[in-house]
Computed example of a mutant assay.
Amino acid sequence: MTVRLRAHHLLCMLTYVGKGYSPAFVENYEAIAARLSSAEEIELVAGPDDICGPLTADPEAHCHGASVIERDREAADAVARLIGSPLTSGARLTPSATLLAGLRKTFATGEIRTACSGCEWAGLCDHVADGGYTGVRVAP
């Protein structure tokens, strides 16, 4: 089985600590975090993914917006530079300890955070990264 993620969620998963848009969103994300923590393969998708699931019924949800598509593009570019491989829809990654450590290191320094500009969760993510990623749910 694979976890379907849009590109900017490759960044979000690094600092996810159990907070979200609604109880249904958090419950869904907790299940996905457990799957990612067991190194279940990630398939990169364009548009709403497994994390967006509880929000997709709302046509006004940000997961359908143009700004999120741009955020996905920026995140894919940043992560691709880090891993040295293009990230397009259909690409597959394994959330190994090595990959997560590399992503978290460059996230903390800001190197791969261009996509986070303007995100309502940026302050929380700053706090989690500055705190050494204590309490994150996606861990190898």
Rank of each mutant, 00 (worst) to 15 (best):
G47S: 05
A139W: 06
H64M: 13
A80Y: 06
A139E: 09
A66T: 11
G132L: 01
S38R: 14
L99C: 14
A78T: 03
D77N: 02
G118Y: 09
N28L: 00
L10V: 00
T94K: 09
S85H: 03
M13K: 09
T98I: 07
S22G: 00
K19L: 05
A122H: 12
I83H: 02
S38C: 03
F107G: 02
S38P: 00
E27L: 08
R4A: 11
R6G: 05
L55S: 05
P95N: 09
F25L: 07
T106R: 14
E70Y: 02
L99S: 13
R104K: 14
L36E: 03
R73K: 14
V68L: 15
L93G: 11
E43Y: 08
T2P: 12
H9L: 06
L5Q: 07
G135F: 07
G84H: 13
A31T: 12
A31R: 15
S37W: 11
T94G: 05
V138E: 01
P23M: 10
R6C: 00
L55W: 09
G90T: 15
S67N: 13
H127K: 15
L44D: 04
R104A: 12
R137F: 01
S89R: 12
V138C: 03
P48A: 11
G135N: 07
E60T: 08
C125T: 04
G47Y: 04
R6M: 01
P48K: 08
A78V: 11
Y133V: 09
Y16M: 05
T98P: 05
L87V: 12
N28R: 14
A80K: 06
S67I: 06
R35G: 01
I51R: 06
E40R: 06
R35T: 00
G65D: 15
H64Y: 15
G102W: 07
E74F: 05
A24R: 07
C119K: 11
G47A: 09
V45Q: 14
E41N: 10
R35F: 00
